[in-house]
Amino acid sequence: MITVDHLTKRYRGATAVDDVSFAARPGRVTGFLGPNGAGKSTTMRVMVGLSPATSGHVEVLGGRYADLPNPGLAIGVLLDASAQHAGRTGREVLTIAARTMGLPTSRVPEMLRRVSLTETEGDGRIRNYSLGMRQRLGIATALIGDPEVLILDEPANGLDPAGIRWMRDLLRDFADQGGTVLLSSHLLHEIEVVADDLVVIGNGRIVAQGSKQDLLSTAGTVVSSADDTRLAGALADAGISASPSGGGSLHTPADPHLVGRIALAAGIALTELRSADSAGLEEMFLELTAESQRDGNVPEGGAAA
């Protein structure tokens, strides 16, 4: 269980995290979603005591992280897979973690196997590791103390598709066994498969949070037809906004049932009509975080919504 309570973090006038509150619950995977620089990593660093909060506070397992007698046995943390001494071997990094936590070093080869690093790879120095291997090592470090909570910052970065699949399964199992998982990403599709709850952050503020189902059901409809311009006009006449969503289709916040009826009434033949699901969530994510997008990459028409 992680509870973030009105957390604010300011750096010399700039507000990195602005009055953020949310909870990650046991038995669930919570996806922490936001574009780069939205405040995800800062929030996570405050969580584990690496940065002091300006105001507000974070509780993990019912208390302050810094008060945990042996944090590694309670909370597994991976903030930056590349933040390791480049001259150390992967095996040594795990050995240090195991020793600090007071675990037998027999856990080390066990963890290497768990994250699919070979014995030879384990003996290699981290400077020669690919980002994907570093992520695996970081996840091994997080898991070695058999914690109840996992806090992972962009763990899928650098993993190949098979690796991403592997990590999803691992996190799913972890949550299914009652563990709490908080993982961040700037890519929605990376975590939407595994996440039960989503917390969307943009510009240091939470812009949406809730269970994935709830967020998806508000995601709207994707529709395409022989004549999208006419369809958009018909929808507009009915007071429903629609925007091109790429791939030659329209996205609208209305539900499919209503869109279908309007199209029928207007005599437009539909070629596609479905609930927007992830596409809609992606759209919503872009819209919600539009303000904080670095490249001002607002989806066309999105600003009107």
Binding site: V48, G72, M101
Partner: peptide, 11 residues
């Protein structure tokens, strides 16, 4: 940057 892990394991 190994302090990220060190100070997480021993706050």
């Amino acid at each position: 940057r190994s302090g990220l892990t060190t100070f997480t394991l021993v706050p």
